[in-house]
Design a protein around this nucleic acid. Structure first.
Lengths: 329, 329
DNA sequence: TTGTAAGCGTTATCAT
DNA sequence: ATGATAACGCTTACAA
């Protein structure tokens, strides 16, 4: 910067003003400075700038893992939203290790990040600690949190379940099953509640015997299908709360020679690429990943600017995608 | 820091020395300082530190996309290697847009990152510019680069092809096909060469008619299978250069009623989760993602420290995973 | 419109 | 072993 100033025959402050275009600078000096910047290939140092203005233009993103459709989607879209606003993204994956998570959060705070986005927060207390002890804005996505002091952007999981129930109920199914995520996670319970209520409106009830608690992984879909069919051999439709488990269900059905959708209608959730790759292509419920991320970044930065003091839950709507794995009874 | 110093009745320099444990400090003062740090919940500011010591402890990672098995694997393992060495990761996804890529690189340089890892570099000149114009160490992974001045850590793609050819040749197949990635990408050509050479040793030749140029996506596998079978109806084995295309091949075979592996042996590459989920489970060739990433980070930091001036290619070995999609003829 | 100077929170040099 | 001080590269009153 000193060199640029010297070459353009101005002071460093003027160079700064040219770069930040916030304070009027004479056109001719501006041109001189810009020429000097070009010539020297000068790149302002963001560390120094950040130190001075107390903003790093960095956003931290905390995920439990990365090689996973849901999380890599979040990473991708949050990165895009951040960059489009002039921010960069630091990501940290904690592998469900609270120690790792804490030390990552610590790093972020020490780096003066302008905000932190948490996904699937396992330990709400950890998040609360950040909020209480630091002034770093926080937004939580992908997981309903109980505390109203936390700002979160989440899918309306009840609606997602309702969408699935509505679709299958409308097709005439009356004996249905559901393979859920871990029921200690609120979103699994909410999805199930929406599913049940929608089906109730069609006169179908999903009793506890028709519910298998999975873990969002492929294998639990396989096990879930086996368990549900054993309990209700006449079941004609299954909703798995994510596509991975739905594919597991499909695998079991293929193994025992039941055809989808002829013998069994099958739905998933998420719309991962896989949903279109399998045969039959999977009917599913999608999350508007891009919107959620966009909203989360927007909210985070508004919080940082003090333009907003929002806390509570922002809810986004799921969508139904009908493909070939469901049919009328 | 000033507060800590005051509370512990020492100078800021002593606080610094306690934190960085590089210079001897009297045990009793050290204890006082540590107590003060605890009490005030003091977190050293990494921006200031970085500015002063000219190291940000930040690594930049450039990828073309994130929601993709290969890249999310790289992200995950590089993040882990970085964190275990006290670094954090900034990721940037350029969506094959050179403009975006350039502005991201620019950001990284201005953030004083200690190094940049590129995957699938589309524009070698962009990378060279970084190397020439800045002092930021660079390592390229996942793509063979022509220039010897670039340090890269890549899979031995020739060996990967040879592994596939060896396996299928050993099973007795003599009429084989290959669905490749884009042939303008060196790794596709190298894989194909290894495949051909290994089969030649078994007396089988893979002529140009038996090669279909795909694009590493699912749909091109479907198209590839159709094209290959039209040209060589008696083909008994196909290697797709990634699992996604292999699943596409499988899809086509199922569509036309050919059983795998009875009527056709099928191999993929990468070992994505999907490989184990489909029926039959896919025989495939894996990349040691974790090792590659570990090595790349290690090399990058050695370059930064000036401990190494390595340039050229570091090569890692692929592995064969035999599952149910291949059988003897 | 422009320049001067202080300060952001560290670390390194040089004394003591 | 510890402290004072300058410097890292930038921005921002304040003055001119």
């Amino acid at each position: 910067m000193k060199d640029v100033a010297k070459l353009a025959n101005v002071s460093e402050s003027t160079v700064s003003r040219v770069i930040n275009r916030n304070i009027p600078v004479d056109t001719s000096t501006r041109r001189r400075v810009e020429a000097a910047i070009q010539k020297l290939d000068y790149k302002p140092n963001l560390l120094a700038k950040g130190l001075r203005i107390k903003r790093s233009h960095l956003i931290g993103l905390v995920v439990p893992e990365i090689v996973h459709h849901t999380f890599s989607s979040f990473i991708q879209y949050i990165e895009e939203s951040a960059v489009s606003r002039g921010y960069n993204l630091i990501i940290g994956n904690h592998k469900d290790d609270p120690g790792l998570e804490e030390s990552f959060i610590d790093m972020l705070v020490r780096r003066n990040v302008d905000g932190i986005i948490f996904t699937r927060v396992s330990d709400e207390n950890g998040v609360m600690k950040v909020i209480d002890r630091t002034r770093v804005p926080v937004v939580v996505i992908d997981r309903a949190v109980e505390r109203e002091q936390l700002a979160s952007v989440v899918l309306d999981n009840y609606k997602a379940g309702a969408l699935a129930g509505e679709h299958l109920g409308g097709l005439g199914h009356r004996v249905l099953g559901c393979v859920t995520g871990p029921l200690k996670i609120a979103l699994s319970r909410e999805r199930l509640a929406g599913f049940r209520d929608a089906l109730a409106r069609h006169g179908a009830s999903v009793d506890d015997d028709s519910v298998f608690e999975g873990d969002f992984k492929f294998e639990s879909g396989v096990r879930g299908a086996a368990a549900l069919l054993e309990r209700h051999p006449r079941m004609t439709a299954i909703w798995a709360q994510n596509d991975l488990m739905a594919v597991g269900v499909l695998k079991h059905l293929q193994n025992i020679g039941r055809a989808v959708p002829r013998d069994m209608s099958l739905m998933g959730m998420d719309d991962i690429i896989l949903a279109r790759m399998i045969t039959p292509a999977l009917t599913t419920v999608t999350q508007p990943f891009e919107q959620i991320c966009e909203k989360a970044v927007e909210l985070l930065l508004a919080l940082k600017e003090g333009e907003s003091t929002f806390s509570g839950r922002i809810t986004m709507d799921p969508d139904l995608i009908v493909r070939d794995s469901t049919s009328a009874i």
